[in-house]
Simulated assay, not measured.
Amino acid sequence: MAGTITFMTFNVRHDHHDHSPTTFFATPPSKENPVDNKEFEGEQPWSIRKWKIVDTILLYSPDILALQEPVYHQLQDIEALLDDEYKWVGVGRIDGNREGEFSAVFYKNEVLKVKDWKTIWLSEQPDVVGSMSWDARHPRTATQVTFVKNDTVFTVFNTHMDHVGIQSREEGAKLILERAREAGKKGAVVLLGDLNSTEEDPAYLCLTNGKYKEKKGSNDTLANLQELNQVCASAYSEKSGQPVRTQENHITLPTHRVIRPGQILANLKKQEEQRELDKTSQNYFLDAHYELASRLKSKGRPGTLSGPFGYRNTLTSFGEGTQDFDRAPIRIDFIMPLESNQFNVQVRQSAILCNRFDDGLYISDHRPVFAKLSW
Rank of each mutant, 00 (worst) to 15 (best):
M1T: 07
I5S: 03
T6Q: 14
F7E: 04
V12G: 05
H16S: 14
T22Q: 12
T23V: 06
D36E: 07
D36P: 02
D36Y: 01
F40S: 06
G42Y: 09
G42A: 09
P45V: 09
W46T: 11
S47C: 03
K52Y: 03
K52L: 03
V54M: 03
T56Q: 10
S61N: 15
P62H: 13
I64P: 06
L65E: 03
L67P: 03
Q74F: 00
Q74S: 08
A80H: 13
A80Q: 10
D83C: 13
D84A: 14
G90P: 05
R98E: 10
F102H: 04
F102L: 06
S103P: 04
A104S: 13
A104D: 01
V105M: 09
F106P: 07
E110C: 02
L112G: 07
V114T: 10
K115P: 02
D116H: 13
K118T: 01
T119K: 01
D127H: 13
V128N: 10
V129R: 03
S131E: 13
M132C: 00
W134A: 02
H138N: 11
T143L: 05
F147M: 10
K149V: 04
F154T: 11
V156H: 04
T159Q: 02
V164T: 10
E171W: 00
K174N: 12
K174T: 12
L175W: 05
I176Y: 01
I176W: 02
E178T: 11
A180Q: 06
A180I: 01
A180L: 02
G193V: 01
L195W: 11
Y204E: 12
C206P: 01
T208E: 03
E214N: 11
G217I: 06
T221P: 00
L222Q: 09
Q226A: 12
Q230N: 04
A233S: 12
Q242I: 08
P243H: 06
V244L: 08
N249T: 09
T255Q: 12
Q263M: 12
Q263G: 00
I264Q: 07
L265M: 07
A266C: 01
L268N: 12
L268D: 06
K270C: 02
Q271G: 00
E272W: 04
L277A: 14
T280I: 11
F285C: 08
D287F: 09
A288G: 12
A288H: 07
H289V: 00
Y290H: 15
E291F: 04
S298N: 03
S298G: 01
G303A: 10
L305Q: 08
G307H: 02
R312N: 09
R312C: 03
N313M: 13
T316Y: 02
T316C: 12
F318Y: 15
F325W: 15
A328S: 15
I332Q: 10
D333K: 01
I335Y: 10
L338A: 08
L338T: 07
E339Y: 05
Q342G: 00
V347H: 11
L353N: 06
R356P: 08
D359H: 04
I363E: 10
D365M: 06
D365E: 12
D365T: 07
F370Q: 02
S374Q: 13
